[in-house]
Write a protein that binds this DNA or RNA. Structure first.
Lengths: 338, 338
DNA sequence: CTGTTAGCGCTTTCAT
DNA sequence: ATGAAAGCGCTAACAG
């Protein structure tokens, strides 16, 4: 039992509960002498206010929730890092939830957030999310929601994203300029706007360079690594295989890396690969992979900052702010250590 | 405003607040007819109990805190994953805090946890933590604390760790058996038991194989990547450089990888490297790095399970349980894709 | 400047 | 089987 509460403090000091409360909150109604005494005693008795009592009374939790599909993924880990930095600055607590890429999980998690547990929510949707009613409900119950990276396809929400279309184009163009004639696009199935936009960028690059679009070169992958690897292996094993690969998410680039290793295909001599990723992983991947690095940390920070702006202004998404950050193409110089 | 509370539900149903409360908690005191009506109305009005009111009343938060030095680090990301899985099973919420390897941060974070915000704490200490008074205080105030991975050096606490000494020995022995004559040990400075134990394992392996111990080969690194790289570069640039490197943490292995790339030193032909790491990163690192993979996900799960056992039994650390999990040495077959 | 009081939403005796 | 009432610890309006 921590047990040190206002009542005990007040008894010890011979003051009333409310005076102690006011003294601790540095109210102008309290004399400086008394304040000192109270502060000293609070320190001595190791007093910490009960967050539940305060939350109940003030109808404020000083807490935000972060809902993400997974965390064993550099992008989200870095994003959380950014979120935490801002939250800490603001004196907020951060509840983290993993949906494990499962819509059912996302739905029940968001529902649990209705009761007033948090003052705001940051979310990156999971791959198979089709409806966001659970989130609009939450929003209507008074909780501001900011979507980051994996955002709903509609226009009416506060979002923080990167320039996915442009980067899909840039990445594919990079392969074309490197001499690739037959470029495959590895996508993840689903309605995620990010993947969609990247694929559209891929197609636009082909059009721009007068390369015919072959739907058979667009590979719909899943969340199953082994299944994905089988698909990629099949793609790269047959003759007439592509000489360029655009992996629209990091995971698929890693799978490609594996498969190439496995079937002894040299990157970049036999196949060139360009992938979305982030700085840290990019540095670990074979130096021969070119990557589009998303500013994950900055996305986290920007999302949290936007959310806090909304919380402070009690803006539930009436004035919608949309932020788009720039990714950068990173091409590592080939190395000698191979 | 969510606004749906027991009072409104009760009014709508023409029942008393307490009856509705009981019905929702499936009390035997309420008739099954009434229960159905209540449940239906709660569903309809999208009722979610206020966690603060409940927490205040029941003196229980259904929340745990996870305090870690950083998250943009595969080990901790995977550990959190494991923790979340267990917490979700138990219906608990998870507050995450990053200390950013800063003791001051760790101290103030832990202090904020005193007020009853959480029912238990999982912590991995930061590198420069020397005293754990803040944690023993927290524990005495009634909050069970489980230490994982980076645990205090003393014996009296519930911990979840890996077999660091054995693995330090195993890793070094691996290098010796691979023919290395001059093996350097990259450590991080500080009182972390993990690093200490790994270094002791390194020394033990040398003794076992009659290799003289040269203190100049033990490099004390820091949290500064650039400084570390400079140290490693210096180590590997001079003639008479080591032919084997034991990196006691993943970060240092990555730095080594960079430096070797930079100064065109071939791994493993010119320098063999073995490092602590975890499965996912191990697979990204050059196939020529051998790694000791820590079961990060399992550590997370085991830690959370231990904590919940303590919470349920109101065990504040009187009966101390210590869990040691096994790491495994992973040697990737060299690949053709280089 | 300090104290009294009501009440946030919920659970839990205790009555009925 | 249902309801009334007290109280968890805190804040804020109102008195003094």
């Amino acid at each position: 039992m921590s047990g040190t509460n206002l009542k005990k403090l007040a008894e010890e000091l011979g003051l009333s509960i409310s005076s102690v409360s006011k003294a601790l909150r540095d109210s102008y109604e309290i004399g400086s002498e008394t304040k000192k005494r109270v502060l000293a005693m609070a320190e001595k008795m190791n007093y910490q206010p009960n967050p539940f009592a305060r939350g109940l009374r003030k109808r404020k939790s000083i807490t935000i929730a972060v809902v993400i599909p997974e965390i064993a993924n550099n992008f989200f880990a870095l994003a959380i890092d950014g979120i935490q930095v801002i939250a800490q600055q603001k004196g907020y607590h951060v509840l983290t939830y993993l949906t494990q890429e499962d819509f059912k999980n996302e739905e029940s998690t968001v529902k649990h957030l209705q009761g007033g547990r948090v003052d705001g929510v940051l979310i990156s949707l999971c791959g198979n999310t089709t409806s966001i009613k659970h989130l609009t409900d939450l929003n209507q119950s008074g909780v501001p929601v900011v979507y980051f990276d994996r955002v709903p396809d509609m226009l009416e929400f506060p979002t923080v994203t990167t320039d996915d279309y442009e980067c899909g184009l840039k990445a594919t163009e990079h392969l074309i300029l490197a001499g690739c004639k037959k470029i495959a696009c590895l996508c993840v199935a689903g309605f995620l706007s990010t993947t969609q936009k990247r694929r559209l960028g891929y197609e636009a690059a082909l059009v721009k360079h007068n390369i015919p679009f072959d739907p058979k070169l667009v590979i719909q992958c899943s969340n199953e690594n082994t299944a994905n690897r089988a698909l990629i292996k099949k793609l790269l094993s047959k003759k007439g295989r592509p000489d360029g690969i655009f992996a629209s998410v990091e995971k698929l680039a890693i799978s490609t890396y594996y498969v190439c290793n496995d079937i002894k295909l040299n990157i970049p001599k036999q196949v060139k690969v360009v992938s979305f990723s982030n700085l840290r992983t990019a540095s670990l991947l074979s130096p021969s992979l070119t990557t589009i690095a998303q500013p994950a940390f900055e996305i986290g920070k920007a999302s949290a900052e936007l959310l806090f702006r909304m919380i402070e202004k009690k803006n539930l998404g009436n004035r919608i702010e949309k932020i788009v950050l720039q990714s950068s193409l990173i091409q590592r110089k080939s190395s000698a250590a191979q």
